[in-house]
Design a protein around this nucleic acid. Structure first.
Lengths: 342, 342
DNA sequence: ACCAGCATTCAAAGCGCTTTGGCTTGGCGC
DNA sequence: GCGCCAAGCCAAAGCGCTTTGAATGCTGGT
C-alpha cells in the first residue's frame, strides 16, 4: 500500500494525505482523522527510500567505526551500544556503522555527508583537537561527542564524565590514607579521557606537595597484559608505589596478577583503585579482593547520547551544550592505609 | 554533480551514462571510456538514495540487535564486528544495526524487509529451530547465520565453528590424561553452540564408558561471576571433578578465582581448558597458569561472514552452503594428568 | 452585492536514479 | 538495391514521497 493508493481510496490528493499524516496544520481535523484512521487500518507505512529521496532525511544515526588489522574495537563499545540501542529502539531509530580505515576516517565522514546517509553521528574516544570534531563542524552534520575534545575555539555538544574529578578524588583518598608514592596505569594518553585522569591525579598530588614521577605513569592500550606489564614495572622499581590507580577493570586484572606474582598483597602492600565502566561480565566486587572503583555506567551514557541525538534531530535541543556527569567513588576492600615505610 | 548534469556535459542521454557506469554491454567501449573518465574527473557519485528508490538495493547489510534493560550484548559481538567491519570497509559496505526488544524481534525483521532497509542480514547466537531463521526464510531476505540452528527441514547458509568437535577433542585429551570426573561450565544451553559443546563432551565421555552427571554441568550466561559460582559448586561437591571444561575465557577467570579460594592449584588439583574466541584484551597465555584452550578467532569469522554476504549479494554465492571451521586445541600449562584419587 | 482573507484542497513539479521500449545507423547477405 | 539485424543511443516512464504554487469555497466586513 502506497500513498497513491491510499489517497485514491480516500478520494483525496496525495498532498492532503501526506500532510495529514505528517501533522501539517492546513488540514481539516476531520479529514486528518479519516486519513490517519485509514492509514492505520490498511497498515500504510510511508516508503522510507522515497521519503529519503524527497527530504534528505534518513531516520538513522551514524557511527564511523575505525577498523584495521591492528585495530581492536574497545569492548566498552558494546556496552555503550547496549544503552544506545535500548533507547533508540523505542524511536525506531537505526544505527549505521560505517567501517573506516582507522588512519583515514575523513573520507568516510565526507562520504556519509555527501550521500546523506544519516541525520547525525556520534563520535567516541575523542582526542584533543580531534580532527573528526573539526571536520563535522565544518561539514555541518549534526553530531554529539561521547567524551571531550579540548582545544577548540568553538563549542560543540558532548557528553562526558568527570574523569579528572574522579581521579582527583580517588587520589586524594589515597593521600589521606597516607600514601605518598602513587602510580597511574592509564589508557592511551593521546585520548582526552586519559589526559583528564592523569591531570586529576597530578592535581591532587600537587595539592599535597607531592608529584607524579614520569616513571610512575604508564599510558597504553587497555588490556590485561599491559596492566600486568605496567604493574610489574613500577612494583619492581626502586621506589615502588603503595597505591595504584588504574583506568580499567581489565587492566586491573593484570595488576592483580602482577601483585600476586610478586608475592605482595592487596591492600596490605598495595592499594588499588580502578575505573569501572560497569560491565555485566566482570564486576569489581568479584575480584579476589573486592576492588574499589570510580564508577560510571557507560551504558547509561549510551542511552543519554541516543536521547540527546534524537532531541537534536527533532529540534528540541540546539546549541552546543556540554554535559559532564559526576563519577561515583566506590570504596571496597582493595584500599587501606599506606604500609609503614619498608 | 548529478547524472543529469554529467550527461549534458557529455552530450549523452542519462540512459547511456547510467549504463556506461554500471557496466551494461550495450554501450560502445569508446563511449564508456569517455563517460567513466568524465565521471571520475568530476567526482560524480550516484546518489544512493535515488538509486535505492529506483532499484530497491541499499548497499547495506543489517543486524537486528537484541536490547532491553536486562539484555547484555555479548562482548564477543564487538570482536566479531571488528572482523566484519574490516572486510566490509574495502567494499564501502555499511552495517545497519536495528535495535529490537529481545523478546520481540519479529516486528523488526518485518519492518526491515518491508522498508527494504538492507540487502541482507546476518543472524547470531542462533538456537535450535531459531524463529529468526524460519522467518527470514519465508520473508525471502538474504541472510547468513553465524552459528547454527538445528532442526529445520530446509537448508540455509551459515558459518559455524566445530563446537562439538572442539569439546570432544578437549574432553578426550582429559580422559587420556587420566581424568574421570570432568565438569562442564557452559554457556546458555538454549543456544546451539552450548548444546553442541555439551554434546561433544558427552560423546567423548561415553566413548570411554564415562558419563557427565547433570550436576557436573552448568549452563548460564557467560560472566566471571557465573563461572565462579559454577566452579565453587562442583568443586565443593562430594565428587569434585579433576578437570573442568569452560566455554569462555571470562568464565575461566571466575573458575580460577574459585580454585584459588578453595586452596586448590591448577593443574595439580584441577586441569582447566576454556574456549578462547581470541580477544586482544584478555589472553589465555596470560592467566596466572597459562590456560589451555580450544581456540577460534571470532574476528576471522566476522570477516568471513562479511565476505560471504557480499558474495551472495553479487550473485557469486548461492544455495545454502553451511561452512564449519575446525577449532584449534592449544595446550598450555593448565592441564596435567589426573591427581591420584584422594 | 462585492471583495479581501482564510481554510482546505489539489495538480504537478521535483528528488536523482534505473529501465523499458523505440529509434537510428551501418554492414551484411542475397 | 533491398531487407534484416545488431549495435548504440535516446526519450520518457517509473520508484513513492514531499512541497510549491494555485485553485476553490466560505465568511465577514463594508
Amino acid at each position: 500500500m502506497n500513498l497513491k493508493q491510499l489517497s485514491q481510496m480516500l478520494e483525496l490528493s496525495q498532498t492532503t494525505v501526506s500532510r495529514a499524516l505528517n501533522g501539517y496544520p492546513e488540514v481539516n481535523e476531520e479529514t486528518r482523522r479519516r486519513v490517519v484512521d485509514a492509514a492505520k487500518r490498511h497498515g500504510y507505512r510511508p516508503n522510507p527510500s522515497a521519503r529519503r529521496l524527497a527530504t534528505g532525511k534518513t531516520g538513522m544515526i551514524g557511527y564511523v567505526l575505525p577498523t584495521g588489522a591492528a585495530v581492536d574495537i574497545d569492548p566498552h563499545f558494546v556496552e555503550f551500544l547496549s544503552g544506545l540501542g535500548d533507547y533508540a529502539r523505542a524511536h525506531e531509530l537505526d544505527l549505521v556503522l560505517s567501517p573506516a580505515d582507522a588512519e583515514e576516517q575523513e573520507t568516510t565522514y565526507r562520504r556519509i555527508v555527501a550521500n546523506k546517509q544519516v541525520d547525525a553521528v556520534y563520535v567516541s574516544s575523542p582526542r584533543p583537537q580531534d580532527s573528526r570534531v573539526a571536520l563535522l563542524d565544518t561539514l555541518g552534520l549534526p553530531f554529539l561527542v561521547h567524551g571531550r575534545s579540548d582545544g577548540f575555539d568553538f563549542d560543540y555538544p558532548y557528553l562526558d564524565i568527570d574523569n579528572e574529578g574522579a581521579f582527583h578524588e580517588a587520589t586524594r583518598l589515597m593521600i589521606q590514607l597516607g600514601h605518598r608514592r602513587i602510580a597511574l596505569i592509564n589508557g592511551d594518553d593521546r585520548e582526552t579521557f586519559a589526559i583528564h585522569r592523569e591531570r586529576g591525579v597530578r592535581r591532587a598530588l600537587a595539592g599535597n606537595g607531592l608529584a607524579l614521577p614520569d616513571d610512575q605513569v604508564s599510558s597504553t592500550v587497555m588490556t590485561e597484559e599491559s596492566g600486568y606489564r605496567a604493574a610489574r614495572r613500577v612494583l619492581e622499581g626502586s621506589d615502588a608505589p603503595t597505591a595504584i590507580l588504574c583506568s580499567s577493570l581489565i587492566m586491573a586484572l593484570g595488576v592483580v596478577r602482577a601483585v600476586r606474582e610478586l608475592g605482595l598483597t592487596i591492600p596490605g602492600d598495595l592499594s588499588l583503585v580502578a575505573h569501572d565502566d560497569v560491565f555485566s561480565w566482570l564486576k569489581p566486587e568479584n575480584f579476589s579482593v573486592p576492588l574499589s572503583t570510580t564508577r560510571s555506567s557507560i551504558r547509561a551514557a549510551g542511552a543519554r547520547v541516543a536521547e540527546r541525538l534524537i532531541a537534536r534531530l527533532s529540534g528540541l535541543e540546539d546549541g552546543a551544550r556540554g554535559e559532564v556527569w559526576p563519577v561515583d567513588l566506590v570504596v571496597r576492600g582493595s584500599i587501606a592505609g599506606a604500609p609503614a615505610r619498608a
